[in-house]
Every structure is written in structure tokens, then in C-alpha cells.
Computed example of a mutant assay.
Amino acid sequence: MECTLCGHHKTYKHGKTSKGSQRYYCPACKQSFTETFDTLYYRRQIKPDQIRMVLQAHSEGSSFRGISRITNLAYNTVVSIIREASVKGQMVHNEQVQQVEVEEIASDEFWSFVKKQKNCLQNELIVGDCWVGMTQAQGSGLILANRVGKHTDEFITQLVANTEGKTGCQQWNTDGWGGYERVLTGVVEHSIGKEQTQQLERTNGILRQQTGRWHRRQNKFAKVWEHTEATIRLVVTYFNWIWIHSRKKNTAAMRAGLTTAPWNWDDLITYPTLL
């Protein structure tokens, strides 16, 4: 077994933990570890199937408390699993979505809110209106970047900067919001019109209907800003790497040439973060 700490190719069995898990010892870094180290299974006294069920249920629209009731897990355990999975999902996105060949980029946002819609003070930056901005590769449908924030020029600037780190494409298609005209300047070719962003509008609709906290007129709205950020990271990972298009029979990452086969939850759960 390869060492998960230093990558050394040979390790040795080194007894077992109090729970019966096999431990290994690395002669190179002189550290011991278990098989589940650096995974979401590490030090969790719950079944692997339950962790996969939590992630699938949340990606398909169930709320934190709803998942807690279905799986009979503590609410804080559910939150912890989703938050850690979202961090791994962001690492996957940062490392794997690089230098993507794209002919055109579509950018759009959709509105949600956190905790309350009205009577929000100016200094309350983590409640009230919460916009989710995304950029998508036209054709493959791969989500290149996403941001959560207030609907400001700074919000769009961050979204554009994140997208430019993923591809060298200079053709942008957006709707008519003026923030894009103020931010997209210089050598960028900028086309404005809803007909240019139909694929991304459809993706936004899928994510809104698939994610419980973004449904309109219901009580599953977000209560904590950080939970919305964790949800969008997890949902984007699910959409890009795991979700198989019913007609095309492949994932967005496959259509973009980033992988040759669909991922599953174990690929995300065990994704290495140390090496």
C-alpha cells in the first residue's frame, strides 16, 4: 500500500486501532496511518453507504435536517459530511479543471436568499439576497467557475477572474446586466442576449429545481450563508463529474475531455488532498 502522507511505494502492517482498523507504517516518513486516512471515512463511526447516501440526497434536493431524519444521523454529522465533501469537491475543481478548450463562455446568475428577504441592514452581508453566479463552457456544458455573493460589480469581477484561470477563451456570452459591460473590457469579445445563454439558463433551472434550498416559495431556504457556499461546491462537483446526461449518456467532464468515465461518490470521498 502506498503511503498517503509522503507517497512512498511500500508500507508495512502496523497493528490495528481500538476499532479494529488496520494500521500501516511508512519507513520513509516514519508515520503510521489507517486505510481511511485522508478520506471522508476517516474517524467516522458510520457506514460508508450512509455517507454516500447523505451526499446523494443533498445533491438531489434534500435538506440537512431531512437527511438527518432519513438516515438517522445527527444533524451536525450531516453538516460535517457535506462541508468536508464540498471542500474536496473544490479541490477536485481547482486541480482538474485547468486549461479547458472552450470556444465560447456563457455567464449568468440566479437569485436566492439566506435567512430573510426583507428588513436587511446594509452591514448584514451574510443574510438577505444571495446570488449564485456561474460560467459554463458552451457545448460541453462544463461549469467552469461559480461564486456566491451580493449582486455587485465585485461579485462579477471575482467570477470572471476565476473563469479566466480555467481557460484562455475570450468569447463571452451574457445577459443584459450592466455589470458585465463594466467588467468585461479590453480584448474580450462580449455578446449580449438571452439567446446566447440558453444552455446555461437550462443548467441554472436544473440546479435550482434539484437543490432544495433554491426552490421558490418553500421553507427549505438557506439559514446559514456558509451552508449555501458548501452546497454550491458539492452540487457543481456532482453536475460536472457524476451526473450522467439522460440523452448524451455521459458527464460534462467527459464531454470536456477531462475524464474518460463517469465518477462516483467514492472517487470524491477518497480523492487525495495531501499529495
Rank of each mutant, 00 (worst) to 15 (best):
M1H: 02
S191G: 11
Q210F: 14
Y75I: 09
L142E: 00
N72Q: 05
K118L: 00
T17I: 07
M134R: 06
E35D: 11
A106C: 12
T157R: 08
K19L: 03
Y41D: 00
T163K: 09
N240P: 10
W243D: 15
G89L: 06
G20V: 10
A28L: 09
H245T: 05
I46T: 07
G212Y: 00
E195I: 05
G61R: 06
E189G: 05
F64P: 04
M1S: 05
G66H: 04
Q98H: 01
K248D: 15
I67N: 01
G176P: 08
Q45I: 04
L184A: 09
K249H: 15
S59E: 02
H14A: 15
L73W: 02
T36A: 11
Y271T: 02
T34R: 03
Q170N: 11
R182P: 12
V160Q: 06
T163I: 14
T34L: 07
P27Y: 01
Q196T: 13
N264K: 14
G149L: 14
G176W: 10
T259E: 14
T36M: 13
L121H: 12
D49T: 15
Q98A: 02
T71K: 01
G20L: 10
V132P: 09
T77D: 10
I105T: 02
L234Q: 03
N76A: 06
C169N: 10
E101I: 15
W177T: 02
A145Q: 01
Y42W: 10
A161L: 04
S21D: 14
R52M: 05
Q209E: 09
V148Y: 03
I82T: 07
H58L: 01
Q199G: 05
E154P: 00
Q98C: 00
S140G: 01
N240H: 11
Q158D: 13
E84Q: 04
A28V: 03
A261I: 00
L55T: 01
F221V: 05
Q50M: 02
Q158V: 05
N173P: 02
L5R: 13
S32R: 15
I126N: 05
Y25R: 11
L142D: 00
S107C: 09
G205C: 09
I70H: 00
L258Y: 04
Q196A: 14
